[in-house]
């Protein structure tokens, strides 16, 4: 069963057709998936307060229903070192269309992967795992499975990736924590299985994986057309 709090967030997002990053992260946090410590600040004052609590250096991102791809409008600040840098960043992005505040977030590091889910017309819910980041479409290195998936499926998906070597400690880099990666994927797949009547697709991109952890550094949830239009579940896919 989906938690009522998650359903409330989904309903509130119908007006935009998709969940902005702090909304999506709240959903994943509620479902017990790993996200960085974050806060959604409405203005500069709140931004500075949250930043002081989370600690510099940090990540700041523009929140706007009009901005789906934040990096395309230079709306992501990574490694913001102090108050003055945060002020400068705020000044710059607060003029972007639809500006609805800043996401203030702790820094996370690791190899950039992408995990995703999509309601496929012919096969229903599918889960995707690949080499991610903003160049995801250039590498085009992904493995796809029809849901539901089990840990063994995720292992097979990892073996299918051309870039698998990068995950297991390539050229002195530490290997990613495979156990945690598998866990995140399986938990994510289980959550989206419940969300099938409400969504069209979901990106966790990047999913940052290091030797210690796998954490959802950015996320986007696109809502299903029937849910957006009617507020009710789309029951045309068998679960």
């Amino acid at each position: 069963m989906i938690k009522q709090e998650i359903m409330d967030i989904l309903h509130r997002a119908r007006i935009n057709g998709w969940l902005m990053e702090p909304e999506a992260k709240r959903v994943f946090a509620l479902a017990g998936l790993p996200v960085p410590r974050f806060a959604w600040a409405a203005d500069l004052q709140e931004s500075l307060q949250h930043a002081a609590r989370i600690g510099y250096p940090l990540v700041a991102k523009v929140v706007s229903p009009a901005v789906v791809h934040k990096s395309e409008v230079d709306g992501v600040g990574v490694g913001i070192a102090d108050e003055s840098q945060l002020r400068t960043f705020y000044e710059r992005v607060s003029g972007l269309p639809g500006f609805a505040g800043l996401l203030i977030e702790e820094m996370a590091a690791g190899m950039e992967l992408i995990a995703g889910a999509k309601l496929d017309f012919q096969f229903g819910l599918i889960i995707l795992l690949g080499i991610g980041g903003i160049s995801v479409e250039v590498y085009d290195d992904v493995a796809i499975r029809m849901a539901p998936i089990c840990p063994a499926d995720v292992e097979m998906m990892l073996r299918e990736l051309k870039g698998e070597k990068l995950l297991s400690g390539f050229r002195g880099k530490p290997a990613v924590n495979r156990e945690k990666l598998v866990r995140v994927l399986v938990d994510f797949a289980a959550l989206v299985q419940e969300m099938v009547p409400y969504i069209a697709s979901i990106d966790l991109n990047p999913l940052l994986c290091s030797g210690e952890e796998c954490i959802i550094a950015d996320a986007r949830i696109m809502l299903g057309e029937v849910f957006v239009r009617t507020g009710g579940p789309d029951t045309s896919f068998v679960r």
């Binding site: 998709w18 995703g116 496929d120 012919q122 690949g130 069209a200 696109m222």
Partner: peptide, 11 residues
Amino acid sequence: VASHTASLAGD
């Protein structure tokens, strides 16, 4: 398509 997953996972 707005999401990477939707564009990467074509029909």
